[in-house]
Design a protein around this nucleic acid. Structure first.
Length: 641
RNA sequence: GCCGGAGUAGCUCAGUUGGUCAGAGCAGCGCUCUUGUAAAGCGCAGGUCGUCGGUUCGAAUCCGACCUCCGGCUCCA
């Protein structure tokens, strides 16, 4: 038979030849390096027999899918070691993931795992790797598979097979055996365990079986694997570096914010952090006002009646802080939309006013589960750069497009790359499907009209409408939602909102929810991680620091400070009796963008010696010129001087 | 909320099997130095070892409950 190689050449092989045979025919070096084979684009085991006329490519460590392959191998080796060390353990699933692999286990009652156990598990894994046990694939009937795993009391495997039968009507399942361990697995795998050359177990965590919180909690062991020790070390080094960019650490080091056990999930903003926060609020206003937004202020606390109208009482109550006064139930607002609807409904509206665009840096409280709180990225008390647009249905496309334009204009200022997601109707929702159809269609066409790339997340929409979300990742690669544009036909109906049309009849407006930063808290958190705490000059909490060389220059330093402060710059004087080297070092560590050094020469010449953070000495210049440069950089929102 | 881990000075961390173990560095404060582009020197002060309860002659150390934090899961801006 003949198969085609990636370069177009044909290879002649005996009938029934496998991928391994093909690799060996091409050359002994390739045979040694081969991990798997791609047959007509699909990744397969080397041991799989090839079909005549197939297009094949031998997969080696250089292939981009190879890492995922050996990580999956590593997951099986992990399960091999764990089943050996902990008799009676049940195994669930163990896939490769973006940064490594995991395997979920259900340990016997009373047995728990901690990272202290990694040493011996890793040692057992290393033995199986050293033994270079082949991965043997076997296709068996469903009955045989069920019998095998029932015999081993592996209920999760049994459940997986039963589901395969139910959902995909399979008649057979594939098993992979390496050494003493046999797993239900689709494959493919590398030829043997020996290919897992550099691996490390990283953490142990709980995970619900099949990701559902009413299922049992399993024990998940995370690890990673690479082809070389050097790659593994580089990854561990990268994780170490990421810790230095953790926004919680930067917030403390830069005196931006802090937390207290007396109000878990709520940041305390220190003066420098408050300056950053407020400047972002100012930017939001600056962006929104020319685009026709009008700012409003609405209450924090509402009668439960309001949340009945908005649907929150039914669908969101779990996340709300509820109190009462004179036996009336009240709740702190978890979103601004009900208040904005109420405000809209308190006045009459004509079609001539539409769209009405209410914006509000609204303070929200959400009763997030304690285990989900995470620095500034997941809090219970936060401010959204929120706005609600009330418009006619005809205006929806333009308004959604306007929101997308505003979003991209905003992210561009920070040099942020965002990922778009379109989320559609969830199971828990209000309103009939015809309206959902229209709303989802409107958002989708807004994206396709501008040829924007997005991921579709079915079922992830808000309970009142579908949404387009903007995502960014933190220093450890975790994804966080920032902005959102949500289309809502339900809440205006719940509030009985209306406007008088040109036809003199009452019409129901459509509402668009939109936030760009999302919450200021989360945005600042992500921005700190993105910049490593080196905020751009216009946003830096201390934009410049004046460093007098000796005490006799203190007076002049104070004059320089006042001059800059008069121009609206955030500036400090380091008046300590320390060496200049020390003052520079401390200013560098505080990531202050600009240092202005004042000594005898500068006093005499009316100059300042300018030094940029990580940019070194820029030389002396007249004070006026330094001020002009600083102001210019701030106005242009430049990265630095 | 669930699983696992952790909590010693403002920060980073020591503290072997319960018995001068309450320590170090940095930060802070004081004094001296008056300094030219990433750390001057000396000294002082600072913690009821997360909280509460228990075991013990004796607990930072052992046990329990609770609180908070960390890593995940579910959920979410």
């Amino acid at each position: 038979m003949h198969v085609t190689l990636p370069d177009g050449k044909e290879l002649e092989l005996p009938d029934g030849a496998t991928g391994a045979d093909a690799a060996a025919t091409i050359g002994p070096g390739l045979a040694r390096a081969a991990l798997a084979i791609r047959v007509d684009g699909e990744l397969r085991d080397l041991s799989a027999p090839l079909a005549d006329r197939a297009a094949i490519a031998i997969v080696t460590a250089r292939d981009e899918d190879a890492l995922a392959l050996i990580r999956h191998d590593a997951a099986h080796v992990l399960a091999t070691a764990v089943t050996e060390l902990y008799p009676g353990v049940q195994v669930a699933i163990g896939p490769a993931i973006a940064e490594g692999f995991y395997y979920d286990f259900d340990f016997a009652e009373g047995v728990s795992l901690s990272d202290a156990d990694f040493v011996r598990i890793e040692a057992a894994m290393a033995e199986h790797i050293a033994a270079d046990e082949p991965f043997d694939r076997r296709e068996v009937s469903v009955e045989e598979g069920l019998e095998l795993f029932r015999g081993q009391h592996q209920r999760y495997k049994v459940e997986l097979i039963e589901d395969l039968v139910r959902d995909q009507q399979v008649a057979t399942v594939s098993l992979y055996r390496n050494g003493p361990f046999t797993d239900l697995c689709r494959g493919p795998h590398g030829p043997s365990t020996g290919r897992v050359t550099a691996f490390k177990l990283q953490s142990v965590a709980g995970a619900y079986w099949r990701g559902r919180s009413d299922n049992p909690m399993l024990t998940r062991v995370y690890g990673t694997a690479f082809f070389t020790r050097a790659d593994l070390d580089a990854e561990l080094e990268r994780l170490e570096q990421a810790r230095a960019r953790d926004h919680r650490r930067l917030g403390r080091e830069l005196d931006l914010f802090t937390f207290s056990a007396r109000s878990p999930g709520s940041a305390f903003w220190l003066p420098p952090g408050t300056r950053v926060f407020n400047r972002l609020v100012a930017l939001s206003r600056e962006m929104a006002e020319p685009r026709g937004y009008t700012e409003v202020k609405t209450p924090q606390l509402y009668d439960a009646e309001l949340y009945r109208a908005s649907g929150h009482w039914g669908k969101y109550r779990e996340n709300m802080f509820i109190t009462e006064a004179e036996s009336h139930p009240l709740a702190l607002k978890p979103m601004n939309c009900p208040g904005h609807c109420e405000l809209y409904g308190l006045q009459r509206h004509s079609y001539r006013e539409l769209p009405v665009r209410y914006s509000e840096p609204g303070l929200l409280h959400r009763n997030e589960p304690s285990g989900t709180l995470h620095g500034l990225l997941r809090v219970r008390h936060f401010v959204q750069d929120d706005a609600h647009i009330f418009c006619s249905e005809q205006q929806v496309p333009d308004e959604v497009a306007g929101c997308l334009e505003l979003a991209f204009s905003t992210y561009e200022i920070f040099g942020l790359e965002v990922r778009l997601e379109l989320s559609t109707r969830p199971e828990q929702r209000i309103g009939d499907d015809a309206l959902w159809d229209r709303a989802e269609q409107a958002l989708q066409s807004a994206l396709t009209d501008q040829a924007l790339e997005y991921e579709l997340h079915e079922g992830d929409g808000a309970f009142y409408g579908p949404k387009i979300d903007f995502h960014m990742t933190d220093s450890l690669g975790r994804s966080w939602q920032l902005g959102t544009v949500q289309l809502d036909y339900q809440m205006p109906a719940g509030f009985g909102l209306a406007y008088t049309g040109a036809d003199d009849a009452e019409h129901q407006p459509v509402m668009i929810h939109r936030a760009l930063f999302g919450s200021y808290e989360r945005f600042i958190g992500v921005l700190l991680e993105h910049t490593g705490g080196e905020l751009p000059l216009w946003l830096a909490p201390v934009q410049a620091i004046v460093l007098p060389i000796a005490d006799r220059h203190l007076e002049r330093a104070e004059e320089v400070r006042e001059r800059l402060a008069a121009d609206g710059l955030w500036v400090e004087v380091d008046g300590r009796s320390e060496s200049v080297g020390r003052k520079i070092r401390d200013a560098e560590l505080r990531k202050v963008p600009v240092m202005l050094i004042v000594g005898d020469r500068e006093v005499a010449a009316g100059e300042v010696a300018v030094r940029a953070h990580r940019g070194g000495d820029l030389g002396a210049m007249a004070l006026d010129r330094a001020v002009a440069r600083l102001r210019g950089a701030v106005e242009q929102r430049a990265q630095g001087l």
